[in-house]
Write a protein that binds this DNA or RNA. Structure first.
Lengths: 239, 239
DNA sequence: CGTTATATTGAAGTGCGTCAAAAAGTGTGG
DNA sequence: CCACACTTTTTGACGCACTTCAATATAACG
């Protein structure tokens, strides 16, 4: 059940059998979430954190006029709100994109983990720091990259993250959000998102349509996006 | 010496005498940093984390053409790279803006803290999650807010953060970066940053010149920026 | 007092937004 | 299998926030 989480963590550090069992004992309750459903709202008091098992989910913030910024995308194996364990409430909402499946970890149980498993605690802490590193890369994209480069960069990131949890098929992967939602990740309107996707297609880099992405030239896509995966911390280290 | 750190943490939770002493014993070595000096570079292996005692520092990422995005600003009491404790190296550089003073916490000592002080560990974890919350708000700014609203929002944030560590004088505070660097926070060119500052001045909201910010109408500034401090987690809670 | 960094303004260009409409795809019931 | 409604994608025309380039003014500094 938590195999994707283990794949993600073991890509970065060694997890002992006891730690694995502690995680398994923590993530017991499972739930299915219908598409486009906001499951957590900013300000709500939290008593558990949510692990994504399958599907695709996002965190977003919005302004009064309805403009919305998706601040993070989550693939299977990601916690959606592990930061909520120490923050106690969120500063953003959390929403499903396609139908998704999640598992819950109660905060009292996580507190217990921090008392009994310091190394596992550091690894969970690492996982929230990895989220922050992705936020920083998105800040760089939003602040400095062109719309097309921003889109290209996002596809590189998602491809890399999905590969870790074995959710890619060669250079193709399902990525079930529409162009409006993709635009909300990129800080672009739907109209411009559509033009940017046409650009990437015409450049022979990438095809994205109706929830399926196919990368045609990964090296050129990476070069165009200036994608450098340093920020994804893909090497195994003792933490 | 670590008074600003204690002010910042005690704003969010209770710290016991033992925890305070453990922190004091951790942060011993102090160093002065000259202005505009990059003290940490991406990819370098880290063995200690850096606490800002006085001054102003930033983290930044850049693209090949030299375009730079400042992804975070740090005021006294902030760790510049506590996330580096679990990440082991950084995905960004860290630089001083004016001359600043820092203190160091060795990672082996931090590891020891995680073994002996679970609650303090959760509080340090919280502190990195707070950084991530600020990243998210900056993503919202960069993706959705106009240049002027972005600038206004940043001044609200810095004012609020400086107030916690008692570094404001009424509605005035020193904020020692130039317009080029401010632009690098906002994803704007120097030229446009200058125009945006003139706008805010002419609207009677704020005056910023040569490292000194004076807010003329905080309520209207907040309204204009849609500043909602939820993301700064200003309430004391048991973590 | 000269030299350099920083701030300011003007004019012109562009990437992306806005508005509007059409085309294509998807789902449902008959 | 088609009819219909609805969502999503795509295209066109036009406008604007911000950039670029260039020059000048002002402050900071040894």
């Amino acid at each position: 059940m938590i195999e994707t989480l283990l794949l993600k963590l073991r890509k970065r550090d060694v997890i002992s059998a006891e730690e694995e069992q502690a995680l398994r004992d923590t993530l017991v309750e499972v739930e299915d979430i219908p598409p486009r459903q906001t499951i957590l709202r900013r300000g709500e008091t939290l008593h558990r954190s949510v692990l994504l098992l399958s599907g695709l989910m996002c965190r977003y913030k919005d302004l009064r006029d309805g403009q919305r910024q998706i601040t993070a995308l989550h693939v299977p194996g990601d916690f959606l709100d592990l930061h909520g364990f120490t923050l106690k409430y969120l500063d953003h909402d959390v929403m499903s994109l396609p139908a998704s499946r999640v598992a819950y970890a109660r905060h009292d149980r996580l507190t217990q983990l921090t008392e009994e498993f310091p190394h596992l605690t550091r690894l969970l802490w690492f996982s929230t720091n990895l989220d922050a590193a992705m936020h920083r890369e998105w800040e760089l994209s939003l602040g400095c990259r062109s719309g097309a480069a921003r889109a290209a960069h996002l596809f590189c990131e998602i491809y890399t993250r999905l590969e870790i949890v074995r959710q890619v098929d060669g250079y193709a992967f399902t990525f079930q959000l529409n162009q409006a939602e993709l635009g909300e990740c990129l800080g672009l309107t739907v109209v411009h998102t559509n033009r940017v996707l046409r650009d990437l297609r015409e450049k022979g880099l990438l095809d994205f349509s109706r929830g399926l992405a196919v990368i045609h030239d990964l090296e050129r896509l990476k070069a165009f996006a200036e994608f450098d995966p340093t920020y994804l911390y893909l090497h195994q280290t003792q933490r």
